[in-house]
Design a protein around this nucleic acid. Structure first.
Lengths: 162, 162
DNA sequence: CATTTTTAATTAAACATTCAACTTCTTAGG
DNA sequence: CCTAAGAAGTTGAATGTTTAATTAAAAATG
């Protein structure tokens, strides 16, 4: 009556192996984020703060348009706007007007932001290594990356506005 | 002067390959959560709601102690408490006293909660398949699971209170 | 070139999460 | 048993995120 693992109303439930893999992925995502957050706490930064700093640090002139930054960090414009306001209050970034498009704004790294980045980055990398990278062999990492790349592409393509 | 890829102040920065793998993992985690959330929205549920429903559905008598539920869903007690209050207001669960330990409470699935679960689960599974499981071969899934399991264990063991 | 549509960004209010303080009950030690 | 310590759970306030509405400028359309 059924073909393959199709059942009852036609739902293809997850097999045990699929279920385990899925839940492990879920747990790792969440636990990892929490751990990284904890490791950044002593420096007064959140994961979000840090990601903004990374993006600006890697950009020409340490500046990015709000929209681009929102896209790069996978956040809604609104959320980014609030986020930048907070970081502005903390003296890590500042807003600057855009000449070529007068609707636009840049988020720019301040000196303090750059110094913070330079100070914190080594600790963050150590944290990423300790809780993720160094727990995987080179082979495993390669294979993980290869498997996940199409998933990321798929998700980026089908994603609605955040 | 340096050994391996150790440099300057002694920080072992991520190699390009490590960097790419890491960022892909990060992106997948976030995009996936967002996508699942979006797919649950038409049913008026959040990921969090759904996870609570799953846990209760799979438990004996459709009930769990608050503490156990918090641990199972990787949330703080406080967060779970608020979460359950919201779900109680939505008629999905109710609280019940615990006889054996009078400090304790159970979160119990209501009929409406159970019905909701039965109705939504097929759609959710379809969503998980579409955006994750079915994009990976059986081999890839196995390998992913094998790689991630030690990471999950590590994180669970070193995690402080949430 | 006037008008409509789209894009960039912010804002206020609603909603969710965290943090710290608190209450109640259980358990372990003397 | 009486008391101190710990565990279960909640609460309110502070903080962060989402949603929807709004402003202003750029681009597209007729």
């Amino acid at each position: 009556m059924d073909t393959e693992d199709t059942q009852d109303n036609g739902t293809r439930w997850l097999t045990d192996e699929e279920q385990r893999a899925w839940r492990t992925h879920l747990d790792v995502s969440r636990l990892l984020m929490h751990q990284l957050e904890r490791d950044l706490q002593p420096f007064g930064l959140t994961n979000n703060d840090y990601e903004i700093l990374v993006n600006l640090s890697e950009s020409k002139d340490h500046r990015m348009r709000m929209s681009d930054l929102a896209t790069a960090t996978l956040q809604s414009k609104s959320r980014l706007s609030h986020q930048i306001t907070r970081m502005e209050n903390a003296g890590l970034v500042r807003r600057e007007n855009c000449e070529s498009d007068r609707r636009g704004l840049f988020a720019v790294l301040t000196d303090h932001g750059w110094e913070t980045m330079r100070k914190v980055a080594p600790h963050h990398v150590a944290s990423v290594r300790q809780h993720f990278i160094d727990l995987l062999s080179e082979e495993e990492l390669k294979s993980l990356h290869a498997s996940l790349t199409p998933v990321a592409q798929h998700l980026r393509s089908t994603r609605g506005r955040m």
